[in-house]
Nucleic acid binder design. Sequence first.
DNA 1: TAGTGGTCTAGACCACTCC
DNA 2: GAGTGGTCTAGACCACTAA
Lengths: 247, 247
Amino acid sequence: MNSPVPPIHPDHRLPLYHRVRDTLSAEIAAHRWRPEEPVPTEAELAKTHGVSIGTVRKAIDSLVADGVLERFQGRGTFVRRPDFQSSFFRFFRFVDAAGVARVPTSRILKREVAAMPAGVAAAFKLPAGSRAVRFSRLRLIDERPLVLEDIWLPHERFKALLEIDPREFGDLLYPLYEQYCGVLVASAQETLSAEAVGARQAKLLELAAGAPVIVIDRVALTADRQPVEWRQSRGPASQFRYQVEIR
Amino acid sequence: MNSPVPPIHPDHRLPLYHRVRDTLSAEIAAHRWRPEEPVPTEAELAKTHGVSIGTVRKAIDSLVADGVLERFQGRGTFVRRPDFQSSFFRFFRFVDAAGVARVPTSRILKREVAAMPAGVAAAFKLPAGSRAVRFSRLRLIDERPLVLEDIWLPHERFKALLEIDPREFGDLLYPLYEQYCGVLVASAQETLSAEAVGARQAKLLELAAGAPVIVIDRVALTADRQPVEWRQSRGPASQFRYQVEIR
DNA sequence: TAGTGGTCTAGACCACTCC
DNA sequence: GAGTGGTCTAGACCACTAA
C-alpha cells in the first residue's frame, strides 16, 4: 500500500498533534495501510509532518486510546482490526454447557436493494429513500436462533456485496466489507433498549408472543468516524447481560 | 486539608509516571484534597516526587482519562466529583412532557444493620455474613415509582449513616457518603441484565406481574478502586435505553 | 501581572523484536 | 546489531484565569 497522502488540510487553528491525528485517521480510513503492515515509524512521521517526535507520539497516543491503532514495542504501530465477535458476547451470554463462548453461525434470510427509511438514512446523513444494500440475518447456535438482525449499507460503497455468491458469506460480515469494499470498521455506537417482541420476529426467534427482547441499534464507523453500516439486532432479554464502567 | 502524605510504596519496578499515579490516586481516595481545592501544581508535584514535569503530566493525564481528576487551564487541577445523577438518565429516559430530564425523588423504605449475603460480601472481598448498613429505596417522579434499589455498605466505614435523621436524607446518597463518611465515589462498575419482575417488586413498582425489568448491579469504587458500595436497581424495561461506544 | 495548565521541542537512554 | 516503541528529562513559549 503506497498511494500518495490524500490532500487533507485540517483546520490550521488546531494544535499540531491534533492535525497530525486527523491526517492519520483519514489515511487509515482510506485504507492506506492494512492491519498487517506497520504504519510509518514515529521518526518518519515526525519528518513527513515536520513536527517533533513527541508531537507524533501524542497524536498516536490518542488514536491508540480510541482503539484505532495498536503499538507493539520493537515491532511497530499497526492499524487495529477490532474484534467485534467478542462484542457480541458482551451483550448476550451464549455459552455451551462447559461455559465456553460459541461462535454463532449466520443465516442470510434476505439480500436486496432497498430504499432507506428516514431513521436509517439520517444515520448516514443521506436523504430518506437513498438506495441501500439491505440484509436480514439470523444468528444461531446449535441451530437455535439467538439474534435477528436487520442491516443497511449505502449502496454506492457496498454494491460489490450484491455480486458475491451467498454461499461465500461466512459467519461474519466485517471481513467482507474489508475484502470486497475496502472498508475497515474501527468502532461502533450502540444504543440498547428493550421491547416486547413482534409477531414476525417472535416466530423467527422461536419466542412466545410478547416475550421481552433486547434491541441493539448500531452505527458502525470508520477510523475518521464516517458512518458505514446501520444495524438493528434483537435477542431474548433472558440471555442479555452487559457490563459498563461509569465515571 | 493538609495531612501528611500517606506512606505509599508502589512497586519500584513500575515506571515512574505509574508510581506517581498510584501515589496520587491513593491520596485522593484518602480524601487529602476536596474537589473544591486544587491539587498541587505540576511543578510542585514534580519537585516533591523528584521527577520531571513531563512525568507528572503523564501521571495526571491518565488520572484525567479515568475521570479521577479534572484540569482547567489557568486555574489548576481538581479532584473530580462524578455526576452520577446524569448516569441515572443514561439508563432510564425519564423525561417530562417537554423532554426535560427530571430529578427523581427518593423514598427510603428501610434502613437497617444486616448480614451481607455471599454475593454482596464477595464484591467487598469480605466474608459472607459481614455486618452491613442496608437501605431499600424507591425513586419516583411525580409520585410514580420508577426504580427500586437495594443498597449495601460495609458497616465500619458507613455506620455514621445510621445516626442521621431520615428526614435529612435528600434525593442523593453519594453527597452523604462524602459528608458523613469521608468517602468520595470516583467510578462504578455496572452490570445490566433483564428479568421478569418478582411479586413484591411488581407491587412497589406498580407493574403487572411478570413484566420485564432491567436489573442494574453496581459496585461503586474510590479513586484507588476500593469497592465501597454495592447496589442493585430495578426499573421497567419499557423505560430503559442505553448508549455505548464499542471498539 | 503572576501563576496555571497546554503545546512543542530535541534530545537521552532503555526494553524489546527480528534478522 | 539495527531498528522499533517506552520512558524520562529540561527546557521554551503560548493561552487562559484570577487578583
